[in-house]
Design a protein around this nucleic acid. Structure first.
Lengths: 236, 236
DNA sequence: TGGCAACCATACGCCTGAGTATGTAACTCC
DNA sequence: GGAGTTACATACTCAGGCGTATGGTTGCCA
């Protein structure tokens, strides 16, 4: 639902008005975070206003979640971050939970298009899995929201979303393992194991800041994972 | 630190006073959850009081966390659960965070004694890993707190605790893989992978309620994990 | 160019949960 | 058997965060 009707918006100038962390495009779907230059004092010629849309709020919410977790998603904080006040927010959303819901669905929809879409284009089934592992391993950015959501599984609203996403991805892995020659039950177990390893890795290395693998160590680790989780030649 | 000086306490009667979930000994260290029968109305002969200790509060906190997550740890809620009021709490702890801290440290200390202690007694190094996997897989109860903490990694207080615990356990796995004949770097990677798979599994199956493996499926999965993550004979 | 709708500001109400103040009951020990 | 310590009750303050009310501003369109 909600076919992403991108509303136009007249941005003339963007200014980081408060001393918040530069968020540097935490979410790839978050194009040009709209921060507006508040007018009251200093009424220069260029102080144009930014009128926000619901999608802007959702993107802002995702960026905030990626940085500070779901718990930090408060409407006044987000409003400040976007350069407006609460009054604006409650025009777009009936409640805070409505925003969270919309943001999560937006993220979920984006994830399907992006993550699974790219993987269809690898021809050789045997080469798909290693390639998948390598690609996933090296795009850090999309994982930030995922990791943030993973460590916010307290919140009842994120659980169903994560459950759906995880299930779809495991189904995908399962299919690829069967294509690679594993027997049905083996493929299913291997898909579970693989995805569990992925999720666990995010937990251990993003949110806990364990020893902080260097770049080379990380590559070596990925190759090790490929070697042990990917079927070689024989369809065991 | 804090050598667990067990204070005496005169429990005469325990009554579940409010309609909360029966917590059924969520934490093994939580012996006899003290719920007191409040006196005001109905002053029968048996209405004895329970005087709580700091350890009681910590155990209660852990039980509450295991059931409803770290976010649900509020002093008034916990006080109600224990059959007393806030006034009691602030005698034992200066603040809510102090309680959380104490509870986490208590859990950490318990985990070291229990989980790692039991594993020292398997003689054959080759048999240790499969046995470890099977044992860990089949004691569900101690994992509840762990899973709850895992999905509460939002909270800054739990991060260092989990980091320490995870590091220790991975070191332990690393040692066992080396004993089993793996080369140093391989053992390290394998330990990472194994522990990541463990953590990920908890996430996917406890907090998300994915398809809910049956008992047989679960056993089969565990054997699959052993087959793919455990070195066979040759020290590859 | 007036008017409606989208968007935002300001000010307020209200509830939740942490922490404080102070008085009280029970246990201990001499 | 009274004094001190331990443990708890009651009543309060205070801050944060959600949501509401209401009015102001901007943009679009007839």
């Amino acid at each position: 639902m909600a076919t992403a009707s991108i509303r136009r918006r007249t941005v003339i100038q963007r200014v980081e008005s408060q001393g918040l962390m530069q968020h540097g495009g935490a979410h790839p779907d978050c194009n040009a975070p709209p921060v507006r230059y508040h007018a009251p004092m200093n009424a220069g010629a260029k102080n144009e206003r930014v009128r926000l849309s619901a999608e802007d709020w959702e993107d802002g919410a995702l960026a905030l979640i990626a940085e500070q977790g779901v718990g930090a998603l408060a409407v006044e904080a987000l409003a400040r971050r976007l350069g407006v006040t609460k009054g604006s927010f409650y025009w777009h959303f009936r409640t805070r939970e409505a925003l969270l819901q919309a943001a999560l669905e937006r993220w979920e929809e984006y994830g399907e298009r992006e993550v699974l879409g790219k993987m269809e284009l690898i021809s050789d089934p045997r080469q798909r899995l290693p390639e998948l592992f390598r690609r996933v391993a090296h795009e850090l950015q999309p994982h930030r929201v995922y990791a943030a959501l993973l460590k916010a599984l307290d919140h009842p609203q994120v659980v169903p979303v994560m459950a759906r996403v995880s299930q779809r991805r495991m189904d995908f892995l399962n299919a690829m393992y069967r294509e690679a020659g594993l027997e049905p039950v083996t493929a299913l177990h291997r898909a579970r194991l693989t995805y569990a390893a992925y999720v666990g890795f995010l937990q251990l290395n993003f949110t806990l800041g364990l020893p902080r693998l260097s770049h080379d160590e990380f590559d070596a680790y990925v190759e090790h994972v490929i070697a042990t989780l990917t079927p070689e030649k024989t369809g065991n």
